[in-house]
Nucleic acid binder design. Structure first.
Length: 820
RNA sequence: GCGGAUAUGCCGGAGUGGUCAAACGGGACAGACUCAAAAUCUGUUGGCUUAGUGCCUACAAAGGUUCGAAUCCUUUUAUCCGCACCA
C-alpha cells in the first residue's frame, strides 16, 4: 500500500494541536514526569540533525510516559539572546530581534514537523522582556545578597566576540566560539556572580547526582577543583604574606619563594636594584598569550626581597615566576625543589639550592637527583619533626603552625567567580545605575524590566547601547539626580540557568514563578543534552537552583538527578558534520524524502543514544523499508484469533520494549520491534486487540503512522493518549519459544545436509514420541523452508517409512532425518 | 601530567560467568520471482571437517581467578574526550 507520509504527518500534527492533547496542567492526582531537552539557540540555519536527535530521544520517553498515565511536562523554548543574531544585524544594519524572531518561527515549524509532544503554551523566549525581566530580578536578588559584585581584575577578552568571557568559556586558552582566537588578558572592571560561595556545595553534591554520566561528574569535580591544604604566613619586608600549600610536610625544604608574575601586588616586593630586571621580564611575558604561556619553560626573575620561613626563620629569596597562577591560592608559593618537580626545574635553571627533607628507603642525595622526589618517606632535616612519616607530618606541622598562629588549614577551589558582563547589545541589560553622588544603585524592582531599545544604530562592533542616550541617561533612583545606566549585558548562560523553572509557570507576569507550580513539576525527571555543557550550563543551572532555594523559591538542592548525554551524529564519512566538509544532513530533507517517523526511528536505532554514531544512507533506507513493512503487516494481517505462540511473543516484546524505553536503550527496543514483526508475519491471523497492542508499542517511535493505523482499525480516539500495554506474564511461554528454536535447528540441519548431499525431494523425520506434536505442528513451516515433502514419524511407529534405519539416531530435542 | 570513556566478525553495533562462532542492521555473495531490473522473499558470510558432526582459531595484548570468561581481577597497548604549570 502506498502511504502519503507527508499527508498523514500534517493531518495528525494538526489534530494533536487542535485537540490540545499535549497541553498539561498541575494535577495532584496524577504522577508527574518532567522531560526536558536543552533548549536551542535559534540560529539562522535552522534545525540540524543533532537537534532532531535530541528531541526524538526526549519525545520517545515522553510519549511512553503519557501513555502510561503520567502527567508529562514536555516544554520547548529558545535561548534567543546571543552573538550570531547580533553579528547578522550589524552586517545587515538591522535589529537582532528581527533575525531572532524569524529564526524562532522557522525552528518552531521544523520542530512541529517532527511530531514532538511539546506543550507550546509554555514556550519561553529569553529575548522577550517578560522573560529577561526575571533575569534582572535575580540579578537584583544576587546584588542584595552580595553575590553580584563589580570588581577590577584580569579577565579574558576575545577580540572576535568583542567582549569578555567567563572562565568556563575559555577552552585551551582560546575562545569557545573561536577556537583559533587566543583570548587576551585584560584588566577590566566587570560584574561577577559569586558562584564560589557555592563551590563547596556544588562540589560535594556531585556525588548525590545518581543518574549523571560519570564523565560529566568527573569533569565538574575537576573544574571546581577542591583541594585541602594549609595556609602559611611568610614574612616579607616585615609584612605577612600568606601562601597555600598541600605539602606543609616539606616546609623545612623551602629554599625560595615564587610569586606570580601576574600578581597585583608584585611590585611591592621588587627592590630598586631589581626593578629593571623585573620590568624586562614582565614585558617579555606580556607579549606571550595565555595559551603559549602554558607550554613555556619555567622562568623567573629575582625580586630583591627575602621571605622568612615561619618555622625555621631562614631567609629565602623571593622570585617572580611565570608558572605560578595569580588567582589560585595566594598567587604565591613556597618552593621546595627537592619535592616538587616545577620547583626543581626552576631551581636547576637558576642554581638555587635543593634541600632534601623527605627520605625514602632508597637514599636520596641532592647531587644525584635528576628530578624531584614527590613520593612518601620519613622527614629529615626538619628539626623536631624528623623521623615522622610525611603523611603524619602534614598533620603535625599544620597543628604546630596553627598553635603559633602562623598558618591554618584551608580548602581551595579552582572554580572562579562567574564573570557575567558582556560588552554586547543582544543580551539581558544589567539593571544597574551609576550615580555620581550615590555610586552604584540597583534599578528598583518596580522599574523592571530594563528594556533593550528597539531604536538602535550599530557602529562597527561597539555596543550600541553606549551611544543610545535614551537608554543611558536616567535619573538616579535614590537622589533623582542625573545618572547613567550600565550598558553591559549579561552572559547568555544567565538566561539558561533557570528557564526550566519558568516552564512550570511560563506566563506569570506577577512573579518569577509560582512556587506551588514548580513544586509540582520540579525537579526535572530527565534532562537531555550534549556533553559540551559539562562545565558551563550544567554548573550554572545547579548554582541557580541553589540560589533560588536560598531565596525560598524552591526546596530543591539540585535541578535534576537524571542527566542524559546524547552522542554526536557524525556525517556519513565519520567526520563531524560541517558545511566545509559537505557532509551535513538536514533533518527536514530526510523527513521529506522518507518521513518524520522513519527519521525518528533511524536516529535512535543505530546505537545506544548516548554514543556517537554516523549517518548512513543505507541505514535510513533500510529503516524506511521496515516502516513500510510494518504498516503492511498491520493492515494485511487477518484479524482473528492470536495463536498461543503469537501471544507469547507479543507479551514478551511488550515487557522487554517497555524496559528498553525506560532504560533509554531505544536501539534494543527497535530490534525487538523488528524481530516481533518478522516472526508474527508467519502467523495466519492475529486478534485485533493484539494488533492494537503492537501499534501502541511503536507509537513513541512512529507517532504519525501509529495514529493512522489506529484510525484505520476503526478507532476514534488518539492512540497517543491510549493506555500503554502491560505485558501479561502468564502468556509468555518460554517453552513455545524453545520448541520454535528446536524446529528452526531441525530446518538448519536439513538444509545443512542438503548442502552436502545435493538436491533431494523428500524428507522423513523421526522424532521421540512425546515431541511428535511439536514437529507435526511445524510441518508446514518445515516444508516451506526446505522445499521438500515432509513426513513425520514417531520412532516407535512400527509402520514408519525408514529404509536406512535412520530413526535410531533420534534424540530428545534432535530428531533423526532421512533425505532422498 | 591528572581525570573520564572505549576496544567484539568486512562495517555499525548487541552481548556482562556456561545455552556464544556471537542478537539485530548494513555490506557482500548465492538462489527464488521477473523477458530484465528495482522491490520482495530465502539462504550463506572465521577455518578445516562431516549426512545434521567433530575439532581448531577467535571478542585489543599478556597474565590470573574459575570445572568453565567476550563477560570477573591485574598489568599493558591503542583510540576518543575533558582539564591542564592549581602548589
Amino acid at each position: 500500500m502506498e502511504i502519503d507520509f507527508s499527508k498523514i504527518e500534517k493531518k495528525w500534527q494538526k489534530k494533536w494541536e487542535d485537540g490540545k492533547i499535549f497541553e498539561v496542567k498541575e494535577n495532584p492526582k496524577k504522577k508527574k514526569f518532567y522531560v526536558l531537552e536543552m533548549y536551542p539557540y535559534p540560529s539562522g540555519s535552522g534545525l540540524h540533525i543533532g537537534h532532531a536527535f535530541n528531541y526524538t530521544i526526549g519525545d520517545i520517553i515522553a510519549r511512553m510516559k503519557i501513555m502510561q498515565g503520567f502527567n508529562v511536562l514536555h516544554p520547548m523554548g529558545f535561548d534567543s539572546f546571543g552573538l550570531p543574531a547580533e553579528n547578522a544585524a550589524i552586517k545587515a544594519k538591522s535589529h537582532p530581534k528581527i533575525f531572532t524572531e524569524e529564526a524562532i518561527a522557522n525552528y518552531i515549524t521544523q520542530q512541529k514537523a517532527l511530531g514532538i509532544t511539546y506543550d507550546w503554551r509554555r514556550m519561553v523566549e529569553t529575548h522577550k522582556p517578560d522573560y529577561y525581566k526575571w533575569d534582572q530580578w535575580i540579578f537584583l536578588k544576587m546584588f542584595e545578597k552580595g553575590l553580584a559584585y563589580k570588581k577590577k581584575s584580569s579577565v579574558n577578552w576575545c577580540r572576535m566576540c568583542g567582549t569578555v568571557l567567563a572562565n568556563e568559556q575559555v577552552k585551551n586558552g582560546a575562545c569557545w566560539r573561536h577556537e583559533d582566537i587566543n583570548v587576551e588578558i585584560k584588566q577590566l572592571e566587570q560584574w561577577f556572580f559569586k558562584i564560589t560561595d557555592y563551590a563547596d556545595e556544588l562540589y560535594e553534591k556531585i556525588d548525590t547526582l545518581e543518574n549523571w554520566p560519570d564523565r560529566i561528574k568527573a569533569m565538574q569535580k575537576n573544574w571546581i577543583g577542591k583541594s585541602h591544604g594549609t595556609e602559611i604566613q611568610f614574612e616579607i619586608n616585615g609584612e605577612k604574606w600568606p601562601i597555600f600549600t598541600t605539602r606543609p610536610d616539606t616546609i623545612f625544604g623551602v629554599t625560595f619563594m615564587v610569586i606570580s608574575a601576574q600578581h597585583p601586588r608584585l611590585m611591592e616586593l621588587v627592590t630598586n636594584e631589581q626593578k629593571k630586571e623585573v620590568e624586562k621580564f614582565l614585558k617579555k611575558l606580556k607579549s606571550t598569550s595565555e595559551k603559549e604561556l602554558a607550554d613555556l619553560e619555567k622562568a623567573g626573575v629575582f625580586t630583591g626581597s627575602y621571605a622568612i620561613n615561619p618555622i625555621t626563620k631562614e631567609k629565602v629569596p623571593v622570585w617572580a615566576g611565570n608558572f605560578v597562577v595569580a588567582d589560585y591560592g595566594a598567587g604565591m608559593v613556597m618552593a621546595v625543589p627537592a619535592h616538587d618537580q616545577r620547583d626543581f626545574e626552576f631551581a636547576e635553571k637558576y642554581e638555587i639550592p635543593v634541600k632534601i627533607v623527605i627520605q625514602p628507603e632508597e637514599h636520596l642525595s641532592p647531587e644525584r637527583m635528576t628530578e624531584a622526589y614527590t613520593g612518601s618517606g620519613k622527614l629529615v632535616n626538619s628539626e623536631g619533626f624528623d623521623g615522622l612519616h610525611n603523611e603524619e607530618a602534614k598533620e603535625h606541622i599544620a597543628i604546630y603552625l596553627k598553635e603559633k598562629k602562623l598558618g591554618k588549614k584551608v580548602i581551595n577551589y579552582k572554580l572562579r567567580d562567574w564573570l557575567i558582563s558582556r560588552q554586547r547589545f543582544w543580551g539581558t541589560p544589567i539593571p544597574i545605575i551609576y550615580c555620581d553622588k550615590c555610586g552604584i544603585v540597583p534599578v528598583p524592582e518596580k522599574d523592571l524590566p530594563v528594556k533593550l531599545p528597539d531604536n538602535i544604530k550599530f557602529k562597527s562592533e561597539k555596543n550600541p547601547l553606549i551611544d543610545n542616550k535614551e537608554f543611558v541617561n536616567v535619573k538616579c533612583p535614590k537622589c533623582k539626580g542625573n545618572a547613567k545606566r550600565e550598558t553591559d549585558t549579561m552572559d547568555t548562560f544567565v538566561n539558561s540557568s533557570w528557564y526550566f523553572f519558568r516552564y512550570c509557570d511560563a506566563k506569570n507576569s506577577k512573579e518569577i514563578f509560582e512556587k506551588k507550580k514548580t513544586k509540582y513539576w520540579m525537579p526535572i525527571d530527565l534532562y537531555i543534552g550534549g556533553a559540551e555543557h559539562a562545565c558551563m550550563h550544567l554548573i550554572y543551572f545547579r548554582f541557580y537552583t541553589k540560589f533560588l532555594r536560598d531565596l525560598g523559591l524552591t526546596d530543591l538542592d539540585e535541578p535534576t538527578q537524571n542527566l542524559f548525554n546524547q552522542g554526536m551524529i557524525h556525517g556519513e564519512d565519520g567526520f563531524v558534520m560541517s558545511k566545509s566538509r559537505g557532509n551535513v544532513i538536514d533533518p527536514l530533507d530526510v523527513s521529506k524524502k522518507y518521513s518524520a517517523d522513519t527519521l525518528r526511528m533511524f536516529l535512535v536505532s543505530v546505537s545506544s543514544p548516548d554514543r556517537d554514531s554516523s549517518w548512513s544512507s543505507t541505514g535510513i533506507e533500510s529503516m524506511h523499508k521496515f516502516v513500510n513493512k510494518f504498516i503492511n503487516f498491520v493492515l494485511e494481517i487477518k484479524k482473528g484469533k492470536s495463536s498461543e505462540k503469537a501471544e507469547s511473543k507479543i507479551n514478551k516484546a511488550i515487557k522487554e520494549i517497555t524496559n528498553d524505553i525506560e532504560g533509554m536503550q531505544y536501539n534494543l527496543a527497535i530490534i525487538k520491534i523488528r524481530q516481533l514483526t518478522d516472526s508474527l508475519s508467519e502467523e495466519k491471523e492475529i486478534s485485533k486487540k493484539d494488533t492494537e497492542k503492537i501499534i501502541k508499542i511503536i507509537t513513541p517511535f512512529c507517532p504519525h503512522i501509529a495514529e493512522e493505523l489506529w484510525e484505520k482499525l476503526g478507532n476514534k480516539s488518539f492512540i497517543s493518549l491510549e493506555k500503554w500495554p502491560v505485558a501479561d506474564e502468564k502468556k509468555i511461554n518460554e517453552k513455545l519459544e524453545e520448541q520454535e528454536k528446536a524446529v528452526e535447528s531441525l530446518i538448519g540441519d536439513i538444509n545443512n545436509v542438503l548442502k552436502i548431499v545435493g538436491e533431494k525431494n523428500k524428507v522423513s523425520i523421526y522424532v521421540i514420541p512425546k515431541e511428535k506434536e511439536i514437529y507435526e505442528d511445524a510441518t508446514e513451516t518445515i516444508r516451506k523452508k526446505t522445499n521438500l515433502d515432509v513426513s513425520i514419524y514417531s520412532v516407535n511407529d512400527k509402520d514408519k517409512y525408514d529404509p536406512e534405519n535412520k530413526s535410531k539416531k533420534a534424540k530428545l530435542g534432535k530428531p533423526a532425518i532421512y533425505l532422498e
